[in-house]
Design a protein around this nucleic acid. Structure first.
Lengths: 217, 217
DNA sequence: TAGATTGTTAATCGATTAACAATC
DNA sequence: TAGATTGTTAATCGATTAACAATC
């Protein structure tokens, strides 16, 4: 009798905590960078390598995989598969970047997002400048944004314009029916409730870093 | 009798939570972008504008300022001063960037960090390429890293090299006696205990974003 | 067996929210 | 006064850690 691979009941029903979601890609990356011949890996070892508590890692892994075997740990490639499945990295979302300055171009050219399930199709800017960036992706004028998004199933808008234009650009992207905004400008953006927003505010990170230094030194 | 401006007792003794540190720069930025003529501002209004709970903002502000007046809220410029003082933005830390690719250059040219107390002096790379970037800051070969860091009081090392070189570069920066590492490469870095580390892992953010989309749609 | 590991339940810790008092 | 606000104490929520049982 063929038995379907069963998943833990709570795997999909339980809400996943945001902190777990942030750790899973880190685990995944670490496990993937282990030497090829590594057969198995334990939560304890991952915890030590990543400076985390072992119980924490054990619980995290239990939430996304039932491949854990007492005394043995996890089979490496099974664990990779389970995490990837959980994170749904194979379902690719399409994105555009608005703002083709240095940062925008850096993101446009970076090919590392594809293994996290993101394909950045094109950039948009008020003055499109050179027709293509080094990485070979096109940069279009803003006037073509909406048509492009609708024609190419763009679900994520990435904002890399200066702070003063960010909200306006955000509104334009929302009008293109993107489902999510990934914001790299240092301002809080207002979006309708159905739109997901994630802000990378480097000034915030920097301040956190500096305060930690202050508390140590 | 001249009375010194007194601060709440718990302001320096109490440990500040990490979450507070992440919100303060956001508050500060919001308050600063209010119309010039704005005299006063309340926690309630800030909360509404930034989609946060009002009690949360109220408690946060109380931790960094004692300028709150019942019924009136805070005097805008006093609050700005108190937050800036708390975050110590006027004490500037010097940094270098290792890795002068597009991302490294974007950060090197970005002038927004200075108002958060960071001065990025120079970039370093294995092949220094053109002598200067658009923003006018120098890019040196790696061989000059240590001498430069020691000569210029560099306390923060920013890493924007590909993942496979990140740990090596990190070790080099630690050997230059930097106090903190700001890591933009998507790997976990090991540092001695006395070194502060902050990683901006975009793959992690991206995954969090995609999972939120999945849970909504 | 003994030891390394997972898994589970309870305890702790930290952060947020709720309720309400104070007050200008 | 009434209303908008801060401030404080208790309750709740969520995440992590501790303790220990299970097991291959």
């Amino acid at each position: 009798m063929v038995r379907m691979r069963t998943r833990k009941n709570d795997m999909n029903t339980n809400k996943v905590s945001k902190t777990l979601l942030k750790r899973l890609p880190v685990y995944l990356n670490y496990i993937k960078t282990l030497p090829e011949h590594t057969e198995s890996i334990s939560a304890t070892k991952i915890a030590k390598a990543l400076d985390l508590g072992d119980v924490l890692v054990r619980k995290d892994l239990a939430k996304v995989s039932d491949g854990g075997r007492r005394k043995l740990g996890y089979v490496r490639e099974d664990l990779i598969r389970d995490i990837e499945e959980f994170l749904d990295v194979n379902r690719t979302a399409c994105a555009v970047i608005v703002g083709a300055g240095k940062l925008g171009q850096a993101l446009l050219d970076y090919d590392g997002f594809e293994k996290s399930g993101l394909q950045i199709l094109a950039g948009f800017d008020i003055c499109p400048g050179g027709p293509r960036t080094g990485g070979g992706k096109p940069i279009f004028p803003m006037s073509r944004l909406e048509a492009y998004c609708r024609a190419n199933d763009v679900t994520i808008g990435i904002i890399t314009v200066p702070a003063e234009h960010a909200q306006k650009v955000c509104d334009q992207l929302v009008a293109c029916d993107v489902e999510a905004i990934w914001n790299f400008s240092p301002v809080h953006l207002s979006v309708p409730e159905h739109v997901v927003i994630q802000s990378e505010n480097l000034a915030v990170s920097l301040t956190a870093l500096r305060m930690q230094m202050k508390n140590r030194g």
